[in-house]
């Protein structure tokens, strides 16, 4: 039997658990967070992530290290309650926008109907209802399940460090550009998985009716595997030289400065070139559509490297889509 910090007698197994917790190391903050947050904190521009209407300076000041007799400074009196303390910290009272946060605000708890936060939430709810009623369905969000490489990712023309994009959700229809050697892996509600290669510029698939999905690859390489919920749906990808229509397969669309290349591992892909010709690319084939000054088409078998890459992504996608499960998000 051993004694803990308060002289309680504990058994061997409990002691082992206690020692395991006590020996856990510090977890330093990431360098990027340290750098950015330090700057914002020192300049007074660090905003909250989770709006917290219950927080007030008095409650904090009642903790031991603080002088409880001190008054609040003038710049903190916005939204003051009858006791003279701010009623809400969800909105900055210094007159600055609450946009200087490192991470987006997550919806916080609401406790007072008179809180200024209520107005914001009510307005957001009305907008949400209107959007739901009058805007076509865009589908569930894409989930970024893995990232690799170093560099930046642009989402709807806003730049993010690749680390910030990891495990985030991206809206259907978002324009995503990978820079440097960044590779993104995304899954969409059991429908399909996408891999965006380095220097890829793509509009993520979006749907107006939940069945016909449209996307665009402007540059780079997007590899797609359809998932268990895909049958009955169709994905159309617009590339610089052709539109690709997919009904359930594993394929890749590559667009570079001189051509669009469609590589199909499984199933078949209907391709409509922008001059109106229609063709079908079968499994195991790779079709290239070259543009001016020498527009022409070529078709050949997939190379061993292409097969290996597509097979690798197919296996990876099945595990991602399987882990996520049909109908879940």
């Amino acid at each position: 039997m051993a004694k803990n910090r308060d002289d309680e007698r504990i058994g061997a197994e409990d002691q082992e658990a206690r020692d395991a917790v006590r020996s856990l190391p510090d977890v330093p903050a990431a360098a990027r967070f340290r750098r950015e947050a330090a700057q914002l904190f020192a300049s007074g521009r660090l905003g909250p992530v989770h709006a917290d209407p219950d927080f007030d300076v008095d409650a904090v000041a009642s903790a031991p290290p603080f002088d409880e007799s001190a008054d609040l400074p003038g710049e903190l009196t916005g939204g003051a309650s009858s006791s003279g303390v701010p009623a809400s910290i969800g909105v900055r009272s210094t007159g600055e926008p609450a946009s200087t946060r490192l991470r987006p605000t997550v919806v916080g708890p609401r406790r007072s109907w008179l809180s200024p936060v209520f107005g914001t939430l009510a307005a957001a709810a009305v907008i949400l209802i209107l959007v739901t009623l009058f805007r076509p369905t865009l589908g569930e969000a894409w989930e970024v399940v893995a990232v690799s490489g170093s560099g930046s990712v642009s989402v709807n023309d806003r730049m993010f460090d690749v680390g910030d994009v990891a495990e985030s959700r991206l809206e259907p229809g978002a324009r995503v550009r990978t820079e440097g050697d960044v590779v993104l892996e995304l899954v969409h509600d059991g429908l399909y998985a996408l891999e965006l290669g380095p220097n890829t510029d793509m509009t993520l698939p979006t749907s107006r009716d939940g069945r016909l999905f449209a996307a665009e690859v402007r540059n780079g390489m997007a590899t797609c595997v359809t998932g268990p919920r895909f049958p009955g749906s169709m994905l159309r990808i617009t590339a610089p030289d052709a539109d690709v229509e997919v009904h359930g397969t594993t394929f890749a669309v590559l667009a570079d400065a001189e051509k669009t290349c469609i590589s199909v591992l499984e199933g078949a892909v209907d391709v409509r070139t922008h001059d109106g010709n229609v063709c079908c690319v079968q499994a195991g084939r790779c079709k290239r559509f070259y543009r001016a000054p020498d527009p022409h088409e070529t078709e050949e078998s997939l190379s061993d490297g292409q097969v290996a890459n597509l097979t690798h992504w197919q296996g990876r996608s099945h595990s991602l889509l399987g882990a996520q499960g049909p109908g879940t998000h």
Binding site: A37, F41, G44, L46, G47, P48, V49, H50, D52, F55, V57, V60, A61, F66, L76, P86, I89, R101, L102, R103
Partner: peptide
């Protein structure tokens, strides 16, 4: 981030 936001406020 939220902790240091509150620290600054108080």
């Amino acid at each position: 981030q939220d902790v240091f936001f509150k620290v600054h406020r108080a």
